Simulated assay, not measured.
Amino acid sequence: MKTQSLIVLFLVFVMSCKSNQNNVEMKTVKSVLIAKGNLHGAGSEGFTKENSVIDNQSDWESLMARMNKVNNVSESFTETKIDFSKYAIIAVFNDVKGSGGHSIELNISTTSENTLVTVKYISPSGNATSVMTQPYYITKIPKQNLPIVFE
């Protein structure tokens, strides 16, 4: 009987811990899409699969210069002048792919402890063009005093 009581108490404890973890309040962060698409330099732009947080003008200009190495990609950005006292840039790049149709989607939310950027890499379904591409996604979010975590 004592063993059964201990098991029940243990299960109640474990379930209460799990329910507390699930009660973390997550709020969606309003982001502004600056650009998404594919680089077509077959990797010559120098990006690997990477996630970046840009919080100053110098790094922003450096990113745009790298992206423009083969094609003037930044001319299609919705904006290039960023007020870094109010905003930060999230830039995500995937690996170079051997075909078209690949893309990236982001979901950005915040808790009391961090800003969480969930990255979803999307592959083509069905036939795709036979051209080397490198998907990217760049967005602007309000500056916060929370660490930014990618998953």
Score class of each variant (00 low, 15 high):
residue 2 K to A: 12
residue 5 S to Q: 12
residue 7 I to C: 05
residue 9 L to Y: 00
residue 10 F to E: 05
residue 10 F to W: 03
residue 11 L to K: 07
residue 11 L to S: 07
residue 21 Q to G: 01
residue 21 Q to P: 00
residue 21 Q to K: 09
residue 22 N to F: 11
residue 22 N to C: 07
residue 24 V to I: 15
residue 24 V to S: 11
residue 25 E to K: 14
residue 25 E to V: 14
residue 29 V to I: 15
residue 29 V to S: 09
residue 31 S to R: 03
residue 33 L to I: 12
residue 38 N to P: 01
residue 40 H to L: 13
residue 40 H to A: 04
residue 43 G to P: 00
residue 44 S to E: 07
residue 46 G to A: 02
residue 48 T to G: 11
residue 48 T to W: 01
residue 48 T to V: 14
residue 49 K to H: 08
residue 50 E to V: 09
residue 55 D to S: 10
residue 56 N to P: 02
residue 57 Q to R: 09
residue 58 S to D: 13
residue 59 D to C: 01
residue 59 D to A: 14
residue 60 W to G: 09
residue 64 M to Y: 00
residue 66 R to D: 06
residue 67 M to H: 02
residue 69 K to R: 10
residue 73 V to F: 05
residue 75 E to F: 00
residue 75 E to Y: 02
residue 76 S to Q: 13
residue 79 E to G: 03
residue 79 E to F: 13
residue 82 I to H: 07
residue 83 D to Y: 08
residue 83 D to P: 07
residue 85 S to M: 04
residue 87 Y to W: 08
residue 87 Y to D: 14
residue 97 K to M: 08
residue 97 K to S: 01
residue 98 G to V: 02
residue 98 G to M: 09
residue 98 G to S: 11
residue 99 S to F: 01
residue 100 G to Y: 09
residue 102 H to G: 03
residue 103 S to W: 08
residue 103 S to I: 05
residue 104 I to M: 11
residue 104 I to V: 11
residue 105 E to H: 08
residue 106 L to P: 12
residue 106 L to D: 10
residue 107 N to H: 06
residue 107 N to K: 15
residue 108 I to C: 13
residue 109 S to G: 14
residue 111 T to W: 06
residue 113 E to N: 10
residue 114 N to H: 10
residue 115 T to Q: 14
residue 115 T to N: 10
residue 117 V to R: 06
residue 118 T to D: 14
residue 119 V to Y: 02
residue 121 Y to C: 05
residue 123 S to G: 08
residue 124 P to Q: 13
residue 125 S to G: 14
residue 125 S to E: 15
residue 128 A to N: 14
residue 128 A to S: 15
residue 129 T to P: 01
residue 130 S to I: 06
residue 137 Y to D: 04
residue 137 Y to R: 06
residue 142 P to V: 07
residue 143 K to M: 13
residue 144 Q to S: 15
residue 145 N to A: 15
residue 146 L to W: 02
residue 146 L to F: 05
residue 147 P to A: 05
residue 148 I to A: 07
residue 148 I to K: 03
residue 150 F to A: 12
residue 150 F to K: 12
residue 150 F to N: 12
residue 151 E to P: 00
